[in-house]
Amino acid sequence: MYVTPARRAQKAVEAVIKGILIASSTVAILTTVGIVASLLFESLRFFGEVPLTDFLFGLEWSPQTAMRADQVGSSGSFGAIPLFAGTLLISAIALIIATPIGLFAAIYLAEYAHVSVRNWVKPILEILAGIPTVVYGFFAALVVAPWLRGGGESIGLDVSSESALAAGLVMGVMIIPLISSLSDDVINAVPQTMRDGSFGLGATKSETIRNVVLPAALPGIMGGLLLAASRAIGETMIVVMAAGLASNLTANPLQAVTTVTVQIVTLLTGDQEFDSAKTLAAFALGLMLFFTTLVLNVVALHIVKKYREQYE
C-alpha cells in the first residue's frame, strides 16, 4: 500500500521532533546546573584564599584593601556578617510594611469587596508588581530618602541619606502585590462551608475571618510570606541605588547598611582582574544568596502545595 514508505519517514521525523522537545526541556536543568557549578567553582577558589569560617562568622567586611596585592595588610577582610545583617534589616523592614498592608488588602478583596471593586483593584495592585525595580530604586534614592532625611531633621533625628528605612520602605511597597495576591489565593481556597458553619453559630464576618478563615489559611499565608522574604533578600536594584556601600553592623534603621546584593554589584562592576579574592568574593556571596533563596522557595512551595491538597 502507499502508506508503508511514507510511514517510515514520518516515524523518523517524529522521533527527531520528540528528541528536540526533550533536548529543549533540559535547558532549564542545564541552567540550574550552570548556576550551581559556576557559583561553586568560583566560591571554592575564593575559599582557597579566605577560610570559610572567616567568611561566615567574620564581623568585618572591607574587600577594598585586597586590591593591592603587593602591599602590607593586603589580605582584606571578608567577614560577611555585616552584609547578612544589613540584608536582614532591610528585608525585615520591607516585610513589616508589606505584610499588614498586603494581608488586609487580600482579606478585604477576598471577603468583603464587591466583584466589580475586585476587578478594578486587583489589576491596579498588580501594577506595583510590574514596575521595574530600577524605578523603585530611583524613587527610594531621590524621593523617599530626602523626605525621610528632612522629616528626621525636623524632629531632631539624624537620618542617613542612604538609610535602611528608605530602601526597606520602598521594597515593602514592591512586595505588597506579591503578598496580597498569594494570600488572596489561599483565602479563596478555604471552603465556604467553614464560613457558613461559623456564621451559623452567630459569628460576625470579622469574627469568622479572624477565628476561622485566617487560622485555616495560615500555612498558605506563611508560604506566601516566605516567598516574599526570598524576593526581598534577592532584590538588587533598590538597595544598590538607595542603600549604603560601606559595611555597618547595626540594627538602627536610620543608618546606612549594605547588603549582599549591593556588594556583589560593587565588587563586579568595572574592569577587574578575575582572580583576585575581591571578585571571587562576589561569587561566594552569590552562592549564599542562591542557597538561602532556594531553601526559602522550596519550603514555601512545599507548604503552599500541602495546604492546597488539604482542601482539595
Binding site: F41, I264, N297, L301
Partner: peptide
Amino acid sequence: NINNLAAVPSIVFGLLGLA
C-alpha cells in the same frame, strides 16, 4: 526545577552569565 528557577534572584543569572 522550573518552579525554583522562576524564584531565583535575577542577579544570580547575571553571575551565571559572567562566569
